[in-house]
Computed example of a mutant assay.
Amino acid sequence: MQNTQLVISQFSDSIREATEIIERPIPKLEDHEVLIQNKFIGINALYDRELYRGRVPYIDVKFPYVFGVETVGVVVEIGKNVKSVKTGQALSTVKVGTAYQEYQIITEAEVIKIPEATPEYLTLNPTGVSAYLALNNTAELKDGETIVVSAASGGLGHIVVQLSKRKNCHVVAICGNPKKVELLKSLNACDRIINYREEDIAKVLSEEYPNKIDVGFDSVGTYMFDAFLANLAPLGRLVVSGLATELTAPKFEQINRSRVYESIYWKGASVRCFMNHLFREQQQKGREYLFDLYRKGALQVKVDPSSFEGIASIVNASEYLLAGKSCGKVVVKM
Rank of each mutant, 00 (worst) to 15 (best):
C169D: 00
D60A: 14
R287H: 09
I114D: 05
G286N: 06
A45W: 06
L163T: 12
V7F: 07
E262V: 07
S258G: 15
W266H: 13
L290N: 09
A189L: 01
K302R: 14
K251Q: 14
F40C: 10
E77W: 02
R49K: 14
R192W: 08
G73T: 05
S263D: 14
A249F: 03
L29H: 01
D200Y: 01
I41C: 00
T87M: 08
T71P: 11
N276M: 15
C169S: 07
K185A: 11
Q284K: 15
A202F: 05
W266T: 13
I41F: 00
Y289F: 14
N276L: 15
E20V: 03
S130R: 07
E120Q: 14
H277T: 15
N3I: 08
H277I: 14
E70C: 10
L141S: 03
S270C: 11
T98R: 05
L163A: 11
M1W: 12
G328A: 03
F225N: 04
T127E: 01
G88F: 04
A139P: 09
G286W: 08
I41K: 00
T248L: 15
F308N: 05
L290F: 06
G242R: 08
A134P: 03
Y103V: 02
V34R: 08
E77K: 14
I264Q: 10
Y196P: 07
A189W: 05
N168G: 04
V161I: 11
V96Y: 02
V82F: 09
V85W: 11
L156M: 10
T19F: 01
A312L: 07
R197G: 03
T118G: 00
S318F: 12
R272A: 03
L122R: 07
V271W: 01
A202Y: 06
G128L: 03
G324D: 08
A249K: 12
I106A: 06
A323T: 10
P25H: 03
V181Y: 01
S153A: 15
G176A: 10
V74R: 12
G79Q: 02
E145D: 00
V82M: 08
G157H: 10
P57S: 13
L141Q: 07
N276V: 13
D200I: 02
K203W: 01
K62R: 13
K333P: 12
V181N: 02
D48S: 14
M275Y: 14
L243T: 11
K329P: 10
K285S: 13
A244C: 05
T222P: 04
F274I: 00
E208H: 08
Q10V: 07
G221Q: 02
E77H: 11
A151D: 06
K180C: 04
S258D: 15
H170G: 09
N38Y: 05
K212Y: 10
P234Y: 02
D31T: 11
N276F: 15
I112E: 10
L247R: 13
G79D: 02
V240T: 13
V204L: 06
T93V: 13
T71Q: 13
E207S: 12
V111Q: 09
V76F: 06
S84E: 12
C175S: 11
K180V: 06
N44S: 13
V330N: 02
N136W: 05
V301R: 06
K212D: 07
